[in-house]
Each structure stands twice: as C-alpha cells, then as structure tokens.
Nucleic acid binder design. Sequence first.
DNA 1: ACCCATTCCGGGAAAAGTC
DNA 2: GACTTTTCCCGGAATGGGT
Lengths: 319, 319
Amino acid sequence: LENLQEAFDFSYKLYYQPGQDHSNDPQYMQQVQALQAKLQTLDRQRREVVAQIQQLLGRSETLRDFLQQELGAWRERQRRGCLGAPVDTCLLQLQTWFTALGEGLFQLLQLLRALAELRQKVTYERDPLQAEMPLLETRLQEQLTSLLQSAFVVEQQPCMPNTPKRPLVLRTASKFCTRARLLIRLYDRNHRMEATIHIDRDPPKTRGFRKFNILTSSSKTVLAGDSHREGLVCDFQYLTLKEQKGGGSGKGSRGSSEGPLVVTEELHLITFTLAYAYCGLELKLETCTLPFVIISNNNQLSSAWASVLWFNMLSTNPK
Amino acid sequence: LENLQEAFDFSYKLYYQPGQDHSNDPQYMQQVQALQAKLQTLDRQRREVVAQIQQLLGRSETLRDFLQQELGAWRERQRRGCLGAPVDTCLLQLQTWFTALGEGLFQLLQLLRALAELRQKVTYERDPLQAEMPLLETRLQEQLTSLLQSAFVVEQQPCMPNTPKRPLVLRTASKFCTRARLLIRLYDRNHRMEATIHIDRDPPKTRGFRKFNILTSSSKTVLAGDSHREGLVCDFQYLTLKEQKGGGSGKGSRGSSEGPLVVTEELHLITFTLAYAYCGLELKLETCTLPFVIISNNNQLSSAWASVLWFNMLSTNPK
DNA sequence: ACCCATTCCGGGAAAAGTC
DNA sequence: GACTTTTCCCGGAATGGGT
C-alpha cells in the first residue's frame, strides 16, 4: 500500500518540472495571464502534495504505533518464553512490516529532499513548501528515528547453551550467547555496520555491586543473511568477572541503606549499540537485554533462576 | 682440610715476592753468586709449589670422584623416593662437601693466577711454572667444570601438589612444581643468576610424539636463602600442551617403525639451564628431571603412574 | 565403527572473603 | 566463627581424530 502511494506522489513531482521551467522563463511577457494561471496550478498542486504528505505521515504514524504495540506484545511473549511458556517468538512477520514501513518512510525522505530542491528553484509568496516543509521534515525524522530505534531488538536473550531452559542465568567462565537483530532490512551495502556490546553500562550504585567484564571481542559486524534473515549475531565464548574488591568500598556512600545484595539477586544488563547509517541518516541505535543473574558455580543456579522468575513475574503481572 | 692447605700455599706465594725483587734488581752485581743461590732457591720453591699443587689436584680429584659417587647414590635414593620408598633425600651434607671442595678449587684457581703473574715478572730456563702451569690450569678448569656441572641437580622432581604420592605424572592445565639446586654455595653477589627451563629440548623422533609448551615465565632468578638453603626454586603454575597435529605427519620418516607411542608411555624431560659466573669462570650448567608422563585427564593417571614405575624399575634394577 | 586422547563441565569441597 | 561467594579440581561424559 505504502509503496503505491509513494510512486503516485513521485509522479506529482514530475508534473512540476515543466510548470516550473515555464514560470521561470519570461519568453512571452504578454502571456502573464496564462502564467498567473499556471502559478495558481502550481500552488494548488504544491498544496495538494503537502496535504498528501501530511496525510501519509499521519497514517504511517498510526502504523508505527501499531507496530510498536505489536513489538511490545512480542517482547512480552519473549519474556514469557524465557520463563518456559510455549509461545511463538518468531520475528518474521514483524520484520516484514517494519521493513515495509521503513521503506515507505525512506522514500518519503527522498521525496522531501526532491521537493526541497524544487523549492530552491522556484518559490513565491505563501508557498506551501516554504511554510510546511521544515515541519514535515522534522516529523519524518522523528518517525524514522523512533521506528529504527524500536526495530533494534534482542532476538535471543543471553543464555548458556548447556542450560537452554534457564536463560538469563550466566556462569562466570562459561560460554553463553545472545543475539540482537534490526527488524528493518535496509542498510548501506557499501559500509559494514558494527555492533558492540557492553555490560552494566550504568551500574546501580548499590554497595557491593559486582563488576564484570566481557572477554572476547565486544564488537561484531552485522550480517545480512539470506532473504529471510537479517540482523547481527554475537556469540561470546566466555565472560569473566572481576570483583571490585579494592578501590575504597565507600561504605557510607549513597545507596548503602539496603544491605549488599545477595549475589543471586544482583541483576545485570548487556547493552547493544549499533551505528546505523542509511540514505544520509545516521543514528546510534541501542537496545538491551532483560536483566540477568551472574553466578560463579552451578550450585547457585537454582536460586539464580528463582530470582529471574521472581523478577519477571513482578514486572509482568502488574501490567 | 682443603682450606688449610690452600692458606699454606698462599703463604708460599708471599715468600716469592722478595726473592723475585732481588733477582730482578741488579743492585749488587758482585753478588752474582748469592743471586745464583737465590735463583736456585726460587727454582726449588717453584718446583715444590708445582708439586704441591699437583698433589692437591690429585687429592681433590679423588674427593670429587667420591662426591660424584655419593651424588649418584643420592640420585638413586631420590628415584626410589619418587616411587614411594621411605628414603632420606636430604642434600645438606652433600652441599657442605661440594661447597668445601668448590671453595678449595676456586682458591687454587686464584693461586694459579697469582703464580702466572709471578711468572710474567721472572722466568728462566727450565722454569717449572713455564712448563707445568698450562697443564695445571687445564686440569683445574676441568675439575671445576665437572664439579659445578654435577653440583647442579634437580632437588624436587616435577610433581602436582594434588597428587604428592604420584610425582612424575603431570596433567595438562594443572599446576605442578619442580625445583633445581646448585650444591655449591658460591656465587657472585653482584649479579643475579638466571635459571631457565625447557621442556623436551631434544624430542625423540618417534612418530606422534606430542609437543608441549610451558606457560608462565620459564626463567627464574636463583635465590640464595638463609645459611642452609641455597639454590633456585621454580614453581610453575600451569603448563599447557599443544599437540603437533598439522605440519606434515611425515609418516614415512625414520623412527616410525614402532607404532605411535601410547600417550601414557610417552616420556618427557624438563631441562634446567643455569648461566653460572664466578671468579671469572663462566659456565652453562645443565641438569634435567627424571622422565615423566603427561596426561590430559585424571582417568589416565593410573596407567601413567604404572609407566613411571615400570620405567624406573627397569633402569634401576639392571644396575 | 571403534579406540584412544582431549575437552567440556557438573558439582563436591576447599579457600577466600565478609560481617 | 558462621556465612556467603569464589576457586579448585575430580572424574563422568561428550567430542574429536585417526585407522
């Protein structure tokens, strides 16, 4: 649907060009009247285009809201899946929708740029382009940014291969893997996109909060797989912890009111960052995993898993 | 005993100096006769010294042979101790003897150098120093070299701390330790002595012989402990193996007549090297451990230990 | 397909750190 | 000294490599 609309709009642009040339070319001054008429036609057409774009933006906004709602539902399903529920966490349909809307918006972006060029060549008093374009552009940028940002998701939450039924519990010195994915299959084939991960970028100020580092390289190139796979996969073999033992425990610092957290209740996050660039648009996309627990021995696994269940129940039910 | 003899000899050297001055100083030419007599005295004394040194060298050679025999017996005891026999493997007595003999020989070395200086100043036809000194020096050097070389021993054979009753069986990625010791407590305090270890410096050409590398630094400074401890200690936390898998198996190469060795019968050696320097004497001392077996899992320990027993029985009994 | 050797890793237990 | 958390490491099982 979107695509057809865009193609339709594109043809409007072509109508302009002749009209523009004539109005700029005073070969026959006696035909001012005719030119006046043409200018009115041009003005009407410009108003129409602006109106259509506004309409399109309104629709795509609705669509985006819908998609983000669907994505929220998927997130909820994923969360339940992590807890063992037999839910469908396939992303294919969402990816199709996101990509379609993304394509539409990017085409609209191109159209806006073309219109801006036309405005450069001809403008007049109360030109609707002059008046509306900046607003339209801002709105489009915001939509694209918001769409791309929400399209960057953690497809697979961190999990040790040996305990596939217990995701979100990681053991030090044991391998685990996690995967992020961009649901919009549009990217610049001339440049590689790099995604990086970081653990506990903004650690809570809780006293005794352990600090960990991820071994192995923390950046990967985004891979575009076959027709149905797109996204980036990060498989880390090992993460190793390093407790912040020395360095002034700062017992009196804020946040120490509640005693040091039990280790199996300490929640950690991994943040994915993706430097996205397409059609002149450059964005830093971020997404992060569900909170997980880090243990050092398998004998902590049950209580760690209990924490994961507990936390996810709490944040699921109230909603 | 040695030391007293040396001090005695040292005083001979002092007698020379006046005799030398006079013979060199023709203040009273008319006393040629007296000088002649002095020269004869000098000659006689030089012959005496040479004779005494020869005698000393002979004695110390006997002593050295005795010490090396004792050391051989100690080695035998150590070998049996490794197999579980309750034997005494204390090195203290041997160290005392070796050090005493070493001191004597080094003093003799100094004396020979002093005599060489005297010979520089005065010499004459059929000078015994001229004739005998090179021989004496060579003999002394050989004795010192041989003594020092045999004084460098592996005090503790490689063994994993967790299996103290099963030395000479090492597991990959498990820590083990071994210690070498120089039984002659003489060293240059101005310079640090560095000892290095190397595994399988000259590996047998047997097909499929595994190649290993020692992790952690392979060199240590020799530490001189308190009055009763001298020697160097090397504690390695981990060794890790690397099998020579690729790189052309060379099946047809020599040594392949016997099939590839069972892994628990493959014997490995660690060589200790010590750059020794004292009193202008510089030597590269080497010693190496008893052959040991490298395993990768504890379930190989029993057969590996059987190999160690087997090999040591074989090389012990025939003797 | 089997066997030998190595890697992987659960889990008991010792060690280290903490109040 | 008890408790929490991590390290150590045995030994069963899975994996891999060679014939």
